[in-house]
Design a protein around this nucleic acid. Sequence first.
DNA 1: CGGCCGCATTTGAACGGTCAAATCGCTCAT
DNA 2: ATGAGCGATTTGACCGTTCAAATGCGGCCG
Lengths: 317, 317
Amino acid sequence: MTVRQVAERAGVSRQTVSNVLNAPERVDPATRARVQAAIDVLGYRPNRSARSLKTRKAGLIGYCLARRPGLNPFMDVFLHALCGAVENADHHVLLFSAPDGEQGMGVYGDLVAQQAVDAFVLSDTVTDDPRPRWLNERGIRFASFGRTGDGEPGPRVDVDGATACAELVAGLFALGHRDIAFIGWSNGVVAGADRLDGWRSECDHLGLSAGEDMVVRVVSDLLAVGALREVVHRGLKVGEDVAVTGFDDSVLACAVQPGLTTVRQPIAEIAATLVQLLQAPVDTPAVLLPGEIVSRRSAPVTTGLAGSRGQPALGTR
Amino acid sequence: MTVRQVAERAGVSRQTVSNVLNAPERVDPATRARVQAAIDVLGYRPNRSARSLKTRKAGLIGYCLARRPGLNPFMDVFLHALCGAVENADHHVLLFSAPDGEQGMGVYGDLVAQQAVDAFVLSDTVTDDPRPRWLNERGIRFASFGRTGDGEPGPRVDVDGATACAELVAGLFALGHRDIAFIGWSNGVVAGADRLDGWRSECDHLGLSAGEDMVVRVVSDLLAVGALREVVHRGLKVGEDVAVTGFDDSVLACAVQPGLTTVRQPIAEIAATLVQLLQAPVDTPAVLLPGEIVSRRSAPVTTGLAGSRGQPALGTR
DNA sequence: CGGCCGCATTTGAACGGTCAAATCGCTCAT
DNA sequence: ATGAGCGATTTGACCGTTCAAATGCGGCCG
């Protein structure tokens, strides 16, 4: 099924069919309807390869899967959102894998050289991630999801961890807690630096201690579950004696007992923004989206915002 | 960077360059080396669109994301494995989403009509999943991962749930348990029917009761976690009074306390097999791969197989 | 010495679109 | 009546690769 066959059936030339699809306003409404009818009858769909060859656009966005599967329970839902957002732009997501660090860049480069993808979406970025710089140096379009170092080039979007953490601290304060510690990843990891900042500034604001002795560096659901378990182990009541909060709203958060209060990431917006940013200039400032605090029993904060009650923990009817 | 430029630099014709890449044996070793050198120097990578256009192969395998993100904790690691297996065949994975049921098939059809993908890998199949039949009727290549109804056409691969469940029952029996129930999904869901069979036959074999009153229909980690929690709630000791096993070896399995004994799915083999099966005739019988029992504290079975000890539960050093 | 075979390599055409420029048919002003 | 102007449509060329057929070139045989 080609453009010629449609053209023949509609009694027009191939270019007119092409125009109906790509620039309908150039075609006379009557002709347009006739061509559209032919397209519908024949079930014609333009060949992607042929179109790509001429337009020099693949219609695909590359996404590299994290090297450590299973570690990011958030990835599943993120991919889903990304896929949807990309499809809204009449593109698709091409998955691939690559070695860690600098040497993995060859794969990125090859994909572009082969014209297999038009741009990349980066996530799971690490400290000194070579990707933003490498891609930028070669003029390859991309957009990052969170967690890149501040100096890194390229448009990026992230959840406003600072504000969300500050709100969590305020919420815990309102519950009567006065000793609020911060457990995060090891010092080198970029992720969560802003969360630490948010915790610290709100603690300062409320006159609470926020020294290094209070920083153990868990701001992820995975780490929070570990903390939660330790609290139980010591015979303390979670949500009363000790409140625990996470950061992700993964399945884990509602799977554990008691349900974990976390910050839900506005994934759909994140994905949509990423797709927009693929068109944006490299020097576009980072877009920060607000996270939504989801209150569960591990720290029954009230956020004052409507509709922020999370799904109940699993298994409790 | 085109095949012509490489040809010119190597002092040969374009076709010879093409042959070096696609049929090296047809080219004289000396010429081949010269061309290869030119390719390396120039960093030439063949244009995928142009190649696709001529060969009528997209070099992409379509994979539809499950409509319910977050429900399948296994998906993350599966996608990773699939991606790797597909890349070994010099292809890539194209992600897409589609509405449930019959109406979603339009998306599958369009992708093929556009020549955007060569074949599909199906997973997350449901009862009366229209996809195998629909694709088969149109001669579209695909391979399914588990859980299709028995009558469905097309090659498929699955984990041998029957054998794995039988082994679990035997392991529990050896631990002294005599009342072994089966909790599974609701009756309609295809998934786990074989697991139920395995449980039943081994119970019969050991002279244990396996009537309908013992069937509650959890053979997934998610369900197992619920069961586990209920046991704790009733003040019973998991792993001693009551043993609980799951089926997936998801992150959940080692995140809960005590760690959950489950069946690890041989994901890499599954993915590799799926890719192989894409070339196989539609009437290829289903490939069953053995699952590996991972013993944790929720049911400390000994399987007699070496190396089947799972990662320790999270947080226990 | 001419013709034939086989291997290595080259040439022409085609894959299915889209871009850019050309053409067509009308209207309207000169 | 002529031609400029304009919108709608068509034609020619090209994107980069591979297939199929053609060509060139030795060696071998008769």
